[in-house]
Design a protein around this nucleic acid. Structure first.
Lengths: 267, 267
DNA sequence: CAGTGGTCTAGACCACTGG
DNA sequence: CAGTGGTCTAGACCACTGC
């Protein structure tokens, strides 16, 4: 406990990626130890060393594995938990986040009923309208980092709350990672689509960007949502990403906002 | 440095508010020291001990003042920084967040141009259409935690980007804290409205909730935004809060989304 | 009861800022 | 150069979970 300022062994806090080209970052930035630990944990997550819902090793174990102190591992996990990749549970352990849990059912769905709490209308009814193979158009290809004409899966579905069709979604997925996805498997699965992606295709959606506009109901969408032609709908274009910021889904949603609204918190 | 497990002096980590009724929380929860420190700092912020943009005392000074270790102060400040109430600047100090800074000009405005970066169209043109005293209707009163008929200020303004009217906003403010606010003072002020609130009325907006819907342009809003009657607009209802979760503003915005979109990140 | 995450301390050193 | 926030360690103890 006296003079032993030696950081540790093996890993040193300076210049983790000297000469690396990985992130596209040109700054010769200094990267603290806990960031490197965070990267190592992230790798294990991406490679599936621990599955969604499972516990990862304890902080002490990880500290031993990486030969750093518990506090350093702790800071790495703190950030991963803040990004919703991990979930800490005191007395139990740290778990890989999943979309298949009750209290995070609607983690990526910001549409809530005007009165009542999210989910108070009972479970959403999910109807698959269509599921087919297609070729990526120019925009779809750009959004999914593919090339025009690459094979994609296209899904159209309607979500209904309390019996009323409320959301129409057109979804594009790169064909390769989702090989074997059919309308049946989608229709038979109870629960969030992203939970199915986790269990069946080992694809975990981690982050998403949404562009929101007001648009008139056209092109047959008025039929599926049972609104008048030209009625205003909330258009929500989402690109969802997996761990390494790889886009894995393009989704164009059309929300009725006469009984629901999109809720957002600014801080 | 040997056996001195005594936590500190004065403040103890257990039962900060035993018997308190404040938060509506019935749990006799244990509150860690750093949370109490956070509360003390929050009080100083609310009372204006340090003004927006100013530096707060260094971590060492605060640790001495509260008689805790630097690490404990650090954790408190970490959370306040994560909530955007404070801003850390390495080598310089920790500063009270403000809406008057270049890089946070649009902290609460999520509407961005379809192409280009936020602000790339140059500064927004702000035109005050109206600013008058009124009485709170039932909804306005509920949103602002007032009683129906209480005096409020009502402001209507149009924001234009690149010369095109893009946002129409109706704003309601409780009259008392904003006594002396006039159309002239609003019109003459360059910069975000929330920055004016900080400097002139000592009101700092800290958090906001938005409800977003798609609505047709009616009631003359089509004139001010120069769109056709019935054209879809993004309706953004915002309630903005100051430090103690006190609502201080109700704002109903109508956004044109033909050249811009509301951008949101999910994680 | 052992094991987990959560809190707190004390001290050392590093990176960044500005005079 | 001194002062700030940022990193890292080591060790103690606390709160929570489940056997």
């Amino acid at each position: 406990m006296s003079a032993t300022p030696v950081p540790s062994a093996g890993i040193t806090p300076t210049n983790p990626d000297s000469g690396s080209i990985a992130g596209g970052q040109l700054t010769p930035a200094f990267s603290p130890l806990y960031q490197q630990i965070k990267g190592l944990i992230l790798n294990s997550l991406r490679l599936g060393e621990w599955k969604p819902g499972e516990a990862i090793p304890s902080e002490m174990e990880l500290a031993a594995r990486f030969r750093v102190s518990q506090g350093t591992v702790r800071k790495a996990i703190d950030e991963l938990a803040a990004e919703n990749l991990l979930v800490r549970r005191q007395g139990k352990g740290t778990f890989v986040a999943t979309h298949a849990e009750q209290h995070v059912q609607f983690r990526f769905l910001k549409l809530v009923p005007d009165s009542g709490t999210p989910g108070s209308e009972g479970p959403a009814q999910r109807d698959i309208v269509e599921c087919r193979r297609a070729r990526a158009s120019a925009d779809v290809a750009r959004a999914l980092a593919l090339r025009t004409g690459d094979p994609v899966l296209q899904v159209r579905r309607v979500l209904s709350f309390a019996g009323s069709p409320t959301i129409l979604e057109d979804i594009w997925l790169p064909a390769a990672p989702f090989k074997g996805l059919t309308a049946e498997r989608l229709a038979n699965y109870q629960g969030p689509m992203y939970a199915l992606f986790e269990t069946e295709f080992n694809v975990r959606m981690v982050r998403a960007e949404e562009k929101i506009r007001a648009e008139p109901a056209t092109d047959g969408r008025e039929m599926l949502l049972k609104v008048e032609h030209g009625a205003p709908l909330l258009s929500v274009e989402r690109i969802a990403y997996t761990y390494k910021d790889v886009p894995m889904e393009l989704r164009r949603g059309y929300y009725r906002t006469d009984t629901h609204h999109y809720h957002n918190t600014l801080s």
